[in-house]
């Protein structure tokens, strides 16, 4: 399905990232204040908690043309809301299966934990997902 797409040098993957306000968004801020450089592919959407991330948000992003989706939250046990991240983790397994069933390589989606003090970890996660998605090439729905 990607056979007709030519990957030019300019191609930058588009990655939608859901960051919880208390850990990963702050972690991304810290990456900024620490001037840690990472690929510009990522577009951060702030939510209060990864527990807010409806699987539909992830599927919607892929449906609308994102090449990868990142969900980044507090470490298990450190959730500002006690357990929202655990709920996300529970959904994630199903989400991965759903994505795979839909014919999408599950490597395009990534769940990670990065605390407010882990700017480097956040940046590393972005870099890793970007590399993976780059190798997979642009994502196109079959009917497009």
């Amino acid at each position: 399905m990607t056979a007709t797409v030519t990957i030019s040098k300019e191609w930058i993957p588009r990655i939608a990232a859901f960051c919880c306000n208390w850990c990963s968004y702050a972690g991304a801020d810290l990456a900024g204040t620490s001037r840690i450089q990472y690929p510009s592919a990522v577009r951060i959407i702030r939510v209060n908690c990864t527990g807010r991330v409806d699987p539909e948000f992830v599927l919607n992003a892929l449906d609308k043309g994102a090449d990868g989706v990142l969900v980044s939250g507090c470490h298990p046990g450190d959730c500002h809301y006690t357990s929202g991240n655990l709920k996300m983790r529970a959904r994630w397994t199903l989400l991965q299966m759903a994505v795979e069933q839909a014919g999408i390589n599950p490597d395009r989606i990534r769940l990670q934990w990065a605390s407010a003090s882990e700017g480097q970890k956040f940046a590393d996660g972005v870099r890793e997902l970007t590399e993976k998605v780059k190798n997979l090439g642009p994502f196109r729905r079959g009917w497009q």
């Binding site: 030019s8 300019e10 939510v47 209060n48 919607n60 992003a61 892929l62 449906d63 642009p138």
Partner: peptide, 26 residues
């Protein structure tokens, strides 16, 4: 639904994050 983080507020933002703007070719 969540006030200030409604699905109808987030979904278009997500769609915009996924879509192409400003003439950069994919």
């Amino acid at each position: 639904d969540m006030r200030h983080y409604r699905s109808e507020q987030l979904m278009p933002q997500i769609a915009a994050a996924a879509r192409i703007h400003g003439g950069m070719k994919k």
